[in-house]
Computed example of a mutant assay.
Amino acid sequence: MSKDIISIDHVFFRYDNQSSYALEDISFHVEKGEWLAIVGHNGSGKSTLAKMLNGLHFPEKGTVRVCGLLLSEDSIWDIRKQVGMVFQHPDNQFVGTTVQDDVAFGLENSGFPHDEMVKRVHDALKSVKMSEFLDQEPHHLSGGQKQRVAMAGILALQPEVIILDEATSMLDPLGRDDVLKTVRALKAQKGLTVISITHDLEEAAKADRIIIMNKGKIYKEGSPEKVFLMEEELIKLGLDIPFSVKMKKELIKQGFELPNSYLTDEELVNALWTSHLNE
């Protein structure tokens, strides 16, 4: 039996002095343990929606429930304990002089006992494979390492939900793959619910489900396989399909038989290699 950890029902929101809605009649649910990608071009409403999930915005109309709590002024701090956000620029999140100091910052603010704090810091850094960087200064790390430290700071607080708000957009391809592999491993190990806010469909391909935003509304939703069949529509919305999907289309034109969907380069390469071995 599935359990909804987030419920958004008929939500409307607009910024001060704006006549048009940034979010208009938005409804969707997120299951516990699911990885949901919310995609759209700049101005589609996806980042506004992410901030609402963490109580940075309140709906003008409609309701937001997180972990069974109705978002309100009274529940906002309880909700924030359950939802951790990793942002586009990890440097903006660093406050400690060393990696371990930074990961401990949220725990100190929450009044955790010292022994519990030390254990959580070490466990969180181990889970993102950054234990050997305990005493490093954060600004000396690579982009991918900084994002993993930012994730460790969130994981130490043991939230139910992690929101990645364009968290990989400033990384090179290797750094992005490294962070996404870490997220997938953590999701499997800890049963985390992950929401990634992105315009990058290569990243969205890793998710269980995709919601496409356009002009403040939900345009379409479905599995990555289903969404990537909408190639022409995605391009018209200012989005781009993953390289592996494009390449499969071109290979079929050249006479290759590729009946399945391949959402990553690795899946496509493996399919081509298997096809070659069977010839």
Score class of each variant (00 low, 15 high):
Val245Ala: 12
Gly216Lys: 08
Val95Glu: 04
Asn17Arg: 12
Gly216Arg: 07
Leu268Ala: 07
Gly68Gln: 10
Val66Ser: 04
Trp273Gln: 14
Asp115Thr: 12
Ser27Lys: 08
Thr63Val: 13
Lys187Gln: 13
Met117Pro: 00
Pro242Ala: 11
Lys248Asp: 10
Leu272Asn: 00
Glu116Cys: 02
Leu164Tyr: 05
Trp77Ile: 05
Ser261Arg: 05
Ser72Gln: 03
Met247Asn: 03
Val245Arg: 11
Ser75Leu: 13
Phe133Tyr: 10
Glu225Lys: 15
Thr97Glu: 13
Met230His: 11
Val103Ala: 02
Ser127Gln: 09
Gly175Cys: 08
Thr264Ser: 15
Gly45Leu: 03
Asn42Glu: 13
Gly45Val: 03
Leu36Gly: 02
Glu221His: 09
Asp172Phe: 06
Asp16Trp: 05
Thr63Ala: 14
Gly222Phe: 05
Leu134Gln: 08
Asp208Tyr: 03
Gly143His: 11
Gln93Trp: 03
His276Trp: 11
Glu34Cys: 01
Leu71Val: 10
Ala167Cys: 03
Lys206Ser: 08
Ala167Pro: 04
Gly43Arg: 12
Ile210Cys: 03
Thr63Arg: 10
Gly62Phe: 09
Gly191Met: 11
Lys236Ala: 15
Gly111Met: 10
Glu279Lys: 15
Lys246Met: 14
Ser47Trp: 08
Thr182Gln: 05
Phe94Trp: 04
Ile154Val: 15
Val83Phe: 06
Ala124Pro: 00
Val11Glu: 11
Leu164Ser: 03
Tyr262Ser: 02
Gly255Asp: 06
Met117Glu: 10
Val66Gln: 08
Phe58His: 11
Lys46Val: 06
Thr198Asp: 09
Ser20Gln: 15
His10Val: 05
Cys67Pro: 03
Ile211Gly: 03
Phe105Ile: 09
Glu231Ser: 07
Leu157Cys: 02
Thr193Ser: 06
Val86Gly: 10
Ser142Trp: 04
Pro90Trp: 04
Leu49Ala: 02
Leu36Arg: 01
Pro173His: 08
Leu186Gln: 01
Leu107Ser: 00
Gly191Cys: 07
Gln18Met: 15
Lys46His: 06
Val66Cys: 01
Lys226Ser: 15
His139Met: 09
Gly143Asn: 12
Asp177Cys: 11
Asp265Trp: 01
Thr97Pro: 02
Gln254Ile: 09
Glu250Ile: 13
Ala50Gly: 07
Thr97Met: 13
His199Gly: 08
Glu250Leu: 15
Lys126Gly: 00
Asp208Pro: 01
Leu268Lys: 06
Val30Ser: 01
